[in-house]
Design a protein around this nucleic acid. Sequence first.
DNA 1: AATGTATGAATGAACG
DNA 2: CGTTCATTCATACATT
Lengths: 191, 191
Amino acid sequence: MEQQTQQQIEDGGNNQAAGTNNRWAPTPPQLRILKGLYYDKGFKYPTPEQIQEICLHLKQYGQIEDKNVFFWFQNLKARERQKLKEFRNVPVGGSLDLNFGSTGSTSNYRSTDRSIDLNFGSRVGYGADGSIMEQRGEYHQEIETLPLFPMHGEDIFGNMKTTSEGGSGYGGDSRISLELSLNSYGDADMV
Amino acid sequence: MEQQTQQQIEDGGNNQAAGTNNRWAPTPPQLRILKGLYYDKGFKYPTPEQIQEICLHLKQYGQIEDKNVFFWFQNLKARERQKLKEFRNVPVGGSLDLNFGSTGSTSNYRSTDRSIDLNFGSRVGYGADGSIMEQRGEYHQEIETLPLFPMHGEDIFGNMKTTSEGGSGYGGDSRISLELSLNSYGDADMV
DNA sequence: AATGTATGAATGAACG
DNA sequence: CGTTCATTCATACATT
């Protein structure tokens, strides 16, 4: 699969053919960066703040909004997980029986028992140097202030950024640095 | 739809011309079964488990993967919706027969069981166009955890270094630092 | 060959 | 978050 011949119509900035194209499509550079974050950095759970940072950075490579970044991560996570699960042998059917669950059926427990750290401070933490340190704590991230933005609407983010920084107390410049490793992410995908 | 004038001559079996042919095409038996499920059984929303079961069953009729089944259902549903939509815009001039082709069993249920009756050998004649009826809003059958799978499976750089907790992962890891060289902010690297 | 059509595949967006 | 919808891209055949 992966037909790469697909031309993503990278409107190098804002080629929005007025009214014709509403759907955002990542430009190659944007995609490269996003993939770099996701795969290289293992950065999969960006907080609203981080989404903004990323989005802001990606703007120089083409038109893009916060929600696009948000969806991009959401979709990738969802699809990756889906793909991953297809392995379990899941016969359980009338015609295709199963019986004796031999085969290392990877019991994917959602264990709530983690003997390790309890000091989950799931909440994002900003390093002193300004780098963002975070990553989901599994379970349910109860980031109190996390609004879970999307949902139809345009300004989903309108409320989170802007003025207050919330508890971070990190005003103004929460600059992040993306150390983009020039990997061959660019698709150039196969086929 | 399907103005069956086309005889998609897919080598009824296994055309895998190594490397040359990547795109899956249902073999006649597979197509017959799939359509039977969709039209006869009104089976339109297979769960991941059911998809696997169907796929497994169809394997005896030719090479096939879960995602193929997944896409098949997705596309069929989408295209019927699309067609119905078009109908509404048609300048109602002639005779749009809204055939309610209830080919036999009207079982429009979302089987609460994982077993799918693939043993119906009845050939159906769904040559008609949108004759599908609504079925949305059905209740969900909470089986357990659901997988799914689509999406490309490219692992080009398969770095995935991160935690990849996959499911139970509660790695202490989860701590990345997003370093985005902001220096490129001013850079005019427009695509 | 060029054009049209059916359909597999991919993915952004949105729902519950 | 898992699932579904909407659009679009890509490609195999079919048609003329």
